[in-house]
């Protein structure tokens, strides 16, 4: 039976205590997208600035539980300066870790690339044992995907 320690790893609590990249970016030029977890009412706001096909800057607003907040914090730290293609590969690898089928999405990616390193994000793999909380962990990633789509759409008219 999974215990609380499987879910609340120390690094998760660290990101919850001291979230990275909290704040806002001026809109425009940045893109602002809100995400909602219908389960608990958590709201996340992502401010994203994309330049030359890469994440130039990102800020996180909103409120949520330790899992959604730490996932957003770790996500923001890892995607900064990554190209949009790299972010897609990371997103796929993260969702695969969450047991979400990601093969053949809109971006033409095949199965998750085993070479993608999730680093600190691997601390969230215990969430899989608590299926209700998977939505908490993926909220920021789904919101990021929407923000990237909107940012790219406004970049090349």
């Amino acid at each position: 039976m999974p215990g609380l320690e499987d879910l609340y790893r120390e690094i998760i609590l660290d990101h919850y205590r001291s979230p990275r990249n909290r704040g806002e970016l001026p809109v425009p030029p940045a893109t602002r997208v809100e995400g909602f977890n219908p389960l608990c009412g958590d709201e996340i706001v992502i401010f994203l600035s994309v330049a030359n096909g890469a994440v130039e800057d990102i800020r996180i607003g909103g409120q949520g539980c330790s899992i959604s907040q730490s996932s957003a914090s770790m996500m923001s730290a890892v995607v900064k300066d990554k190209t949009v293609a790299e972010v897609h590969r990371l997103t796929n690898a993260f969702k695969a870790m969450m047991s979400i089928h990601v093969g053949g999405d809109d971006h033409g990616d095949a199965l998750p690339d085993p070479d993608v390193k999730l680093g600190d994000l691997e601390a969230l793999q215990g969430v899989v044992k608590f299926p209700v909380r998977i939505k908490c962990a993926t909220l920021s990633w789904n919101t990021l995907a929407q923000a990237i789509d909107e940012a790219m759409a406004s970049e090349d008219p």
Binding site: L4, L7, C40, D42, G64, C65, S66, I67, R133, C136
Partner: peptide
């Protein structure tokens, strides 16, 4: 404490 985190501990 977020209610989700609270009730997760309650479950235990």
């Amino acid at each position: 404490l977020h209610p989700h985190d609270l009730t997760q501990v309650f479950d235990q």
